[in-house]
């Protein structure tokens, strides 16, 4: 089957430090994938490259059926192509209501003039309410996002991703700071979302990854160390070395 996103031989260097080293990784149109790896493995930098925040020194990033190169596109163009991103720290617009947050993310024309002339429609309203339902914030639509709890903010941000209707969701540590119940709900949301699109989750928490029950890619020093089911990669000796300390070094 053809791939949604193909990252090939990408490298990037910061002040002599090779954050990403000849990284190649592919994602199918509908799949749930977890990316794990120790600190400094290049997880966040990988997301930066895909979303256009960082330009790689070499390699290609090819997107979709029409094989568009994402390199040279701006962040907003890439986002409009259908790649959504959730940050490590929950970043929602705290001064605005949950509804406004979701409305902003809703898949509508993005130009300033169409936004200026934008009119509220029933369909959009329904879509917002559906997303709010999905993330468990249906009762909080008129609340200010700043008043939400940490977990709710995480959900709101996931909800904003969903409202964007992306084909690829990049989710950075969605479970950080959540209670066990909240984690469970988060898992459900992500697994549901992955039925119709590719969802890539970067996570430290092995328990959470296990619950996602999906293919796992292990990053180390900027390239792929191992790939497969969680049980497969956790039985890999090099992965164990990386995680449990470099006994040889």
């Amino acid at each position: 089957m053809s791939m949604l996103l193909e990252v090939n031989g990408v490298s990037v260097t910061f002040d002599g430090f090779r954050a990403i080293n000849n990284l190649s990784i592919n994602f199918a149109p509908t799949e749930l994938r977890a990316i794990i790896g120790p600190n400094g493995a290049g997880k966040t930098t990988f997301m930066d490259i895909v979303t256009g925040k960082t330009k790689p020194d070499e390699g290609t990033v090819v997107w979709g059926e029409r094989n568009i190169s994402l390199l040279g596109m701006s962040e907003s163009q890439i986002a409009r192509e259908g790649i959504g991103r959730k940050f490590q720290k929950p970043t929602v617009f705290e001064a605005q209501t949950v509804r406004q947050n979701l409305a902003m993310a809703l898949k509508t024309p993005r130009g300033p003039f169409s936004v200026l002339m934008h009119k509220k429609t029933k369909a959009n309203g329904a879509r917002i309410e559906a997303v709010a339902e999905q993330i468990g914030l249906a009762d909080s639509l008129t609340r200010s996002a700043g008043e939400l709890s940490h977990g709710q903010k995480q959900w709101l941000e996931i909800g904003m991703l969903l409202a964007q209707e992306p084909r690829l969701m990049l989710v950075d540590e969605p479970a950080a700071g959540m209670t066990p119940e909240e984690r469970e709900k988060t898992t459900d949301i992500l697994r549901e979302a992955a039925k119709t699109r590719a969802v890539v989750v970067v996570e430290h928490d092995m328990e959470f990854v296990r619950r996602l029950n999906c293919k796992v890619t292990v990053l180390h020093e900027g390239s792929v160390l191992a790939e497969g089911s969680l049980d497969h990669v956790t039985s890999n000796q090099t992965v164990i070395d990386v995680y449990l300390g470099r006994s040889h070094a």
């Binding site: 910061f14 002040d15 430090f17 954050a19 930098t45 925040k53 960082t54």
Partner: peptide, 8 residues
């Protein structure tokens, strides 16, 4: 200029 992720 400072380079790298810290500067961004």
């Amino acid at each position: 200029a400072l380079k790298g992720r810290a500067a961004a």
